[in-house]
Amino acid sequence: MAQTVGRNVAAPLLFLNLIMYLIVVGFASWCVNRYINGQTNHPSFGGNGATSFFLTFSMLAGVVGVVSKLAGGSHIRAWRNDSLAAAGSSSLIAWALTALAFGFACKEINIGGHRGWRLRVLEAFIIILTFTQLLYLVLIHAGLFSSKYGPGYRDTDYGMGAAGVDPAHHKGGAAVVGSRV
C-alpha cells in the first residue's frame, strides 16, 4: 500500500503530541500533589481561583491524550478504515478535553496573580497541544476528502477482497479432506 500524505505528516505529529501529553501528565500531577497538600505558596506553584479546574482538566486531558496516541499509533501502522474509527474517536475526545483545559488556562492567565513557572509551563503546553491535537485530528480524517490523503469512511471494500470473489476461494481453494488420527 502506498504511503499517503496524511500518514507521512500525522506520524511525526503523533509522536510530538505523545511526548507533550506525557509532559502535561508529569507537570499536572506535580501541581495536583502540591494543591492537595495545601502548598500553593510554593515558589514554583502559586495559582488563583481557576487553578483547581485547570489542573483537573489538564490531568484528564493528559491521560486521555496519551491513551489516544496509543490507538493513533496502531492506526498509523495499519492505516485502514477500521483503525481510523478507534484513533479518530479517541483523538476527538482527547482534543475536547484539551480544549476545556485550554479554556481554563486562558481564564487562569486572565485572572492573573502569582503563578509559578510549573503552572506557566503547564499552561503553555496545554495551549500548544490544543492546536497540534486539532491538526493531528484533521490529518487522520483527511481521507474523507480524498483517498490521496488516507483512508476515509466512504471506502466500501475494507474486509472484502475484489468484488465478486469468494473469500474462501481466496484463502487456498477447496477444503482439504483428511482422516482422523
Rank of each mutant, 00 (worst) to 15 (best):
G113M: 04
L129Q: 10
L129F: 01
I127D: 03
G113T: 08
G113W: 05
G112T: 07
F125Q: 08
Q133K: 13
L122H: 09
R115I: 09
R115V: 07
H114D: 00
F131K: 03
I111P: 04
T132R: 05
W117D: 06
T130V: 02
H114Q: 02
R118L: 03
F131H: 04
K107C: 11
L134A: 14
L122M: 09
A124M: 13
L119V: 12
Q133D: 12
Q133E: 12
A124Y: 13
F131Q: 07
L119F: 00
A105E: 03
I109C: 02
R118C: 00
I127Q: 08
E123T: 15
G103C: 06
T132Q: 06
L119Y: 01
T132S: 15
F104E: 05
I128G: 03
L129P: 05
I126E: 00
K107E: 14
N110K: 10
I127Y: 09
R118E: 03
I109P: 00
I128N: 01
A124P: 12
I127T: 12
I109Y: 05
E123M: 15
T132G: 10
H114C: 00
F102W: 06
E123D: 15
L135A: 15
L135I: 13
E108W: 02
T130H: 01
R118K: 07
A124T: 14
L119H: 04
L135T: 15
N110L: 12
Y136N: 11
A105T: 08
E108Y: 01
R118V: 03
I109M: 06
A105D: 07
G103Y: 01
L119W: 00
T130F: 05
F102G: 11
C106R: 12
L119E: 06
L135W: 08
G113H: 08
A124F: 15
L129S: 14
N110G: 09
K107R: 12
E123R: 14
E108C: 06
I126T: 11
A124I: 11
G103H: 06
E123P: 13
R118F: 02
L134M: 09
I111L: 06
T130Y: 00
I127R: 10
L119S: 10
Q133T: 15
C106I: 12
Q133M: 12
G112V: 02
Y136S: 11
L122D: 07
V121R: 10
W117L: 03
I126H: 03
I126Y: 02
E123G: 13
W117Q: 07
Y136P: 03
L134C: 04
G116C: 04
G112A: 01
F104W: 08
F102R: 05
A124C: 13
G116T: 08
F102N: 09
L119C: 09
L129N: 13
Y136R: 07
Q133C: 11
